[in-house]
Protein backbone atom coordinates (compact mmCIF):
# COMPACT_ATOMS: atom_id res chain seq x y z
CA UNK A 1 0.00 0.00 0.00
CA UNK A 2 2.89 2.37 0.69
CA UNK A 3 3.91 2.62 -2.91
CA UNK A 4 0.31 3.55 -3.80
CA UNK A 5 0.33 6.35 -1.24
CA UNK A 6 3.42 7.78 -2.81
CA UNK A 7 2.00 7.49 -6.29
CA UNK A 8 -1.52 8.84 -5.97
CA UNK A 9 -2.81 10.31 -2.71
CA UNK A 10 -6.39 9.96 -3.87
CA UNK A 11 -6.00 6.29 -4.67
CA UNK A 12 -4.46 5.72 -1.25
CA UNK A 13 -7.50 7.23 0.40
CA UNK A 14 -9.77 4.95 -1.62
CA UNK A 15 -7.71 1.94 -0.67
CA UNK A 16 -8.00 2.86 2.99
CA UNK A 17 -11.75 3.13 2.66
CA UNK A 18 -11.87 -0.23 0.97
CA UNK A 19 -9.79 -1.93 3.62
CA UNK A 20 -12.17 -0.66 6.29
CA UNK A 21 -15.27 -2.14 4.69
CA UNK A 22 -13.87 -5.32 3.19
CA UNK A 23 -15.27 -8.01 5.45
CA UNK A 24 -16.00 -11.30 3.74
CA UNK A 25 -19.00 -13.15 5.07
CA UNK A 26 -18.97 -15.92 2.46
CA UNK A 27 -17.62 -19.40 3.05
CA UNK A 28 -13.98 -20.00 2.28
CA UNK A 29 -13.84 -21.81 -1.04
CA UNK A 30 -10.17 -22.76 -1.07
CA UNK A 31 -10.58 -25.81 1.17
CA UNK A 32 -8.78 -28.84 -0.18
CA UNK A 33 -9.83 -32.18 1.22
CA UNK A 34 -9.55 -34.89 -1.40
CA UNK A 35 -6.94 -37.56 -0.80
CA UNK A 36 -6.27 -36.38 2.76
CA UNK A 37 -7.17 -38.35 5.84
CA UNK A 38 -8.23 -37.12 9.24
CA UNK A 39 -6.37 -38.14 12.39
CA UNK A 40 -8.46 -40.34 14.66
CA UNK A 41 -8.55 -39.95 18.43
CA UNK A 42 -7.29 -43.48 18.99
CA UNK A 43 -4.66 -43.16 16.31
CA UNK A 44 -5.75 -46.40 14.74
CA UNK A 45 -6.57 -45.48 11.15
CA UNK A 46 -4.26 -47.53 8.97
CA UNK A 47 -2.79 -45.75 5.96
CA UNK A 48 -0.82 -47.19 3.09
CA UNK A 49 2.11 -45.26 1.67
CA UNK A 50 -0.13 -44.03 -1.11
CA UNK A 51 -2.74 -42.74 1.35
CA UNK A 52 -0.16 -41.25 3.71
CA UNK A 53 1.06 -38.82 1.06
CA UNK A 54 -1.52 -36.27 -0.09
CA UNK A 55 -1.97 -35.53 -3.79
CA UNK A 56 0.38 -32.56 -3.92
CA UNK A 57 3.27 -34.98 -3.34
CA UNK A 58 2.59 -36.76 -6.63
CA UNK A 59 5.82 -36.61 -8.55
CA UNK A 60 7.82 -35.91 -5.38
CA UNK A 61 7.16 -38.64 -2.82
CA UNK A 62 4.83 -40.86 -4.81
CA UNK A 63 4.22 -41.31 -8.49
CA UNK A 64 1.21 -41.57 -10.74
CA UNK A 65 -1.14 -44.52 -10.83
CA UNK A 66 -1.82 -44.21 -14.55
CA UNK A 67 1.05 -44.14 -17.01
CA UNK A 68 0.20 -43.28 -20.59
CA UNK A 69 1.00 -40.81 -23.33
CA UNK A 70 -2.52 -39.41 -23.56
CA UNK A 71 -1.78 -36.84 -20.89
CA UNK A 72 1.05 -35.30 -22.89
CA UNK A 73 0.45 -32.08 -24.74
CA UNK A 74 -1.63 -32.45 -27.92
CA UNK A 75 -1.88 -36.21 -27.39
CA UNK A 76 -4.78 -38.24 -28.65
CA UNK A 77 -7.72 -39.70 -26.72
CA UNK A 78 -7.10 -38.18 -23.28
CA UNK A 79 -10.71 -38.45 -22.15
CA UNK A 80 -11.28 -41.96 -23.44
CA UNK A 81 -8.13 -43.16 -21.70
CA UNK A 82 -9.20 -41.63 -18.40
CA UNK A 83 -12.65 -43.21 -18.62
CA UNK A 84 -11.15 -46.59 -19.50
CA UNK A 85 -8.81 -46.35 -16.52
CA UNK A 86 -11.73 -45.69 -14.19
CA UNK A 87 -13.54 -48.67 -15.64
CA UNK A 88 -10.51 -50.94 -15.26
CA UNK A 89 -10.09 -49.87 -11.63
CA UNK A 90 -13.73 -50.57 -10.83
CA UNK A 91 -13.70 -53.90 -12.62
CA UNK A 92 -10.53 -55.14 -10.95
CA UNK A 93 -11.54 -54.09 -7.44
CA UNK A 94 -14.89 -55.76 -7.93
CA UNK A 95 -13.53 -58.93 -9.45
CA UNK A 96 -10.86 -59.31 -6.80
CA UNK A 97 -13.37 -58.53 -4.11
CA UNK A 98 -11.84 -57.46 -0.80
CA UNK A 99 -8.47 -58.69 -2.01
CA UNK A 100 -6.87 -55.59 -3.50
CA UNK A 101 -4.67 -53.93 -0.89
CA UNK A 102 -3.28 -51.05 -2.93
CA UNK A 103 -4.18 -48.67 -5.69
CA UNK A 104 -4.46 -50.23 -9.11
CA UNK A 105 -1.59 -49.16 -11.33
CA UNK A 106 -2.34 -49.01 -15.04
CA UNK A 107 0.55 -48.72 -17.44
CA UNK A 108 0.01 -48.47 -21.18
CA UNK A 109 2.69 -49.24 -23.70
CA UNK A 110 1.78 -49.01 -27.36
CA UNK A 111 -1.42 -51.03 -27.46
CA UNK A 112 -0.77 -53.14 -24.34
CA UNK A 113 -2.25 -52.39 -20.95
CA UNK A 114 -0.36 -53.64 -17.92
CA UNK A 115 -2.23 -53.66 -14.64
CA UNK A 116 -0.33 -54.00 -11.39
CA UNK A 117 -1.74 -54.33 -7.89
CA UNK A 118 -1.10 -55.80 -4.48
CA UNK A 119 -3.39 -58.75 -3.72
CA UNK A 120 -4.08 -60.41 -0.38
CA UNK A 121 -3.31 -64.14 -0.12
CA UNK A 122 -6.82 -64.95 1.08
CA UNK A 123 -7.85 -67.32 -1.70
CA UNK A 124 -6.23 -70.42 -3.05
CA UNK A 125 -3.68 -70.07 -5.85
CA UNK A 126 -6.02 -71.98 -8.09
CA UNK A 127 -8.76 -69.37 -7.71
CA UNK A 128 -6.20 -66.65 -8.16
CA UNK A 129 -5.05 -68.10 -11.48
CA UNK A 130 -8.66 -68.32 -12.58
CA UNK A 131 -9.29 -64.69 -11.66
CA UNK A 132 -6.16 -63.54 -13.47
CA UNK A 133 -7.26 -65.27 -16.65
CA UNK A 134 -10.82 -64.06 -16.27
CA UNK A 135 -9.78 -60.44 -15.75
CA UNK A 136 -7.31 -60.46 -18.61
CA UNK A 137 -9.72 -62.09 -21.00
CA UNK A 138 -12.68 -59.84 -20.30
CA UNK A 139 -10.67 -56.61 -20.18
CA UNK A 140 -8.86 -57.41 -23.41
CA UNK A 141 -12.21 -58.07 -25.04
CA UNK A 142 -13.60 -54.74 -23.90
CA UNK A 143 -10.48 -52.66 -24.51
CA UNK A 144 -9.68 -54.45 -27.77
CA UNK A 145 -6.01 -54.76 -26.86
CA UNK A 146 -3.84 -57.19 -24.89
CA UNK A 147 -4.12 -56.80 -21.12
CA UNK A 148 -1.57 -58.21 -18.69
CA UNK A 149 -2.00 -58.53 -14.96
CA UNK A 150 1.17 -58.19 -12.93
CA UNK A 151 0.20 -58.92 -9.38
CA UNK A 152 2.14 -59.09 -6.19
CA UNK A 153 0.65 -60.92 -3.23
CA UNK A 154 0.93 -60.02 0.42
CA UNK A 155 0.27 -62.37 3.31
CA UNK A 156 -1.70 -59.98 5.43
CA UNK A 157 -3.56 -56.70 5.10
CA UNK A 158 -1.22 -55.16 7.61
CA UNK A 159 1.78 -55.68 5.35
CA UNK A 160 0.84 -52.65 3.28
CA UNK A 161 0.18 -50.39 6.28
CA UNK A 162 2.64 -47.52 6.30
CA UNK A 163 1.49 -45.72 9.41
CA UNK A 164 -1.46 -45.24 11.75
CA UNK A 165 -3.00 -41.86 12.31
Amino acid sequence: MNFLKKLVPQAAAEVQQLSRSSIHTSVVCCRVQSGRYRITTKRNRALTYEMANPPHFIGHRKSWNSWNTSTLKDALRPSQTAIEDVFIRKFVTGTWHALVCSEIIIKRQHNTIRIAALIRQAITPRKMYFLIGYTEELLSYWMQCPVTLELQTVGDKKDVVFKYI
Binding site: Y49, S102, A116, L118, E150, Q152
Partner: peptide, 14 residues
Protein backbone atom coordinates in the same frame (compact mmCIF):
# COMPACT_ATOMS: atom_id res chain seq x y z
CA UNK B 1 12.61 -46.35 3.54
CA UNK B 2 9.94 -48.99 2.87
CA UNK B 3 11.42 -52.25 1.65
CA UNK B 4 10.78 -53.84 -1.72
CA UNK B 5 8.08 -56.20 -0.43
CA UNK B 6 4.53 -54.88 -0.73
CA UNK B 7 5.90 -51.62 -2.08
CA UNK B 8 3.54 -50.17 -4.65
CA UNK B 9 5.90 -47.32 -5.50
CA UNK B 10 8.42 -49.73 -6.95
CA UNK B 11 5.68 -51.29 -9.07
CA UNK B 12 4.64 -47.91 -10.43
CA UNK B 13 7.91 -46.64 -11.79
CA UNK B 14 9.10 -47.97 -15.16
Amino acid sequence: APSKFANAELMKIP
